[in-house]
C-alpha cells in the first residue's frame, strides 16, 4: 500500500517539480510570482491534445510540438505584457500575470471547450510490478520526469547559459555589470520555464484528464514547492516539489483524503517560522 502511494507521489511530485523549476527562476530573476504558470501548463497540455487528437500525430510528436510552441507563446507573452511592465513594481507584474492566467484559461476553454478530455480514449490495463499497480503511461511519466530533471541539471550546471541563469538568480545587478546580456537571458529563462511547464501539463493530462482549470489548481502546490525549496533555487524547487507531491499521497494513509489538497499549504505554514528562507534558500537572500 505504501509502495503504491509512493509511486503516485512520485508522479504528482515530478509534475510539481517541473512546474516549480520555472516558477522559482522567474520569481528570482524577474522578481514576481508568475501566476500564469499553471495556465501555461494547461496551454501546453492542450497544444499536445491538438496535435494528437485533431492532427492525428503520435503522442511523442504531439508532445514535442507542444514543447516547441508553448515556449514561443511564453516569450511572446513576455514581450507583449511583462516586458513593458518590467520597470514598474513586482505587484503590477503579479497582477498582470493573474490577468494572463485568466486569459489563457478562457482561451483554452473557448477553443477546446469546458468538457473533460483525454489523450487516449479507452482503458489502459495496469501492470503489476513489485506489488505496485502502475499503468504503462505512468511509467512513461516517471521516466520523462527523471530525464527532464537530469537535463535541467546538465543545463544549469554544465552550460554557459545555465550558469548565467543561476548567476542572475543570485545577483541580477552583478550579472549585468559582468557583461551578461540579461534581456537575452530573461528570454531563455522563459523558454526553459515554459518547456518544463508544458511537459508538466502534458504529464498531468496523461495521468488524469485535460480540463481548462487543470493548471490553475496546480498553482498552490507549485508555489508551495517554490517556497519550500527556497525561492530562486531550482534544485530546491525539485526537492520541494517531491515533498509536496509525496506527502499528500502518504498522508492519506493516516488522515482522511478530504484533507489532502490543503496539505501542501499546511506544510509551508509549518516550515516558514523555522526556516523563512526555505529548505535550501540562502539566508538573507
Amino acid at each position: 500500500m505504501v509502495k503504491q502511494l509512493i509511486v503516485y507521489g512520485l508522479i504528482y511530485g515530478g509534475i510539481i517539480s517541473l512546474g516549480a523549476i520555472g516558477l522559482t527562476l522567474i520569481f528570482r530573476i524577474l522578481r514576481f510570482g508568475h501566476f500564469a504558470h499553471g495556465d501555461m501548463m494547461t496551454l501546453g497540455a492542450y497544444l499536445a491534445l491538438f496535435f494528437k487528437a485533431t492532427a492525428g500525430w503520435p503522442m511523442w510528436a504531439a508532445a514535442l510540438a507542444s514543447l516547441v510552441i508553448t515556449p514561443m507563446a511564453a516569450v511572446l507573452i513576455d514581450r507583449l505584457l511583462y516586458k513593458p511592465l518590467r520597470r514598474t513594481t513586482p505587484a503590477i507584474l503579479l497582477i498582470a500575470s493573474v490577468g494572463m492566467a485568466l486569459f489563457l484559461r478562457h482561451l483554452v476553454q473557448f477553443i477546446w471547450g469546458a468538457q473533460v478530455q483525454v489523450y487516449n480514449p479507452g482503458i489502459e490495463r495496469p501492470l503489476l510490478i513489485w506489488g505496485v499497480r502502475i499503468r504503462p503511461s505512468q511509467i512513461w511519466i516517471i521516466v520523462m520526469a527523471v530525464v527532464l530533471v537530469f537535463l535541467v541539471w546538465v543545463f544549469l550546471q554544465k552550460t554557459k547559459f545555465g550558469k548565467a541563469m543561476r548567476a542572475m538568480a543570485d545577483n541580477m545587478d552583478l550579472a549585468a555589470v559582468s557583461g551578461i546580456d540579461t534581456e537575452r537571458m530573461i528570454t531563455w529563462t522563459w523558454v526553459l520555464g515554459a518547456v518544463l511547464a508544458a511537459a508538466a501539463g502534458i504529464m498531468l493530462g496523461i495521468d488524469t484528464q485535460l480540463r481548462p482549470v487543470m493548471g490553475w489548481i496546480m498553482l498552490l502546490p507549485l508555489f508551495a514547492a517554490t517556497i519550500l525549496g527556497g525561492v530562486g533555487n531550482p534544485y530546491g524547487a525539485i526537492a520541494g516539489g517531491m515533498i509536496i507531491g509525496m506527502s499528500p499521497e502518504l498522508s492519506t494513509k493516516y488522515i482522511t483524503t478530504a484533507y489532502k489538497p490543503p496539505g501542501a499549504l499546511v506544510r509551508v505554514v509549518l516550515l516558514l517560522p523555522v526556516r523563512a528562507q526555505g529548505l535550501f534558500g540562502a539566508k538573507g537572500a
Binding site: R166, N171, D173
Partner: peptide, 11 residues
C-alpha cells in the same frame, strides 16, 4: 567591482 554583493554566492 561593486562595493557590496560583488560575487555570485551560490556559484
Amino acid at each position: 567591482v561593486p562595493q557590496t554583493a560583488n560575487v555570485f554566492p551560490s556559484l
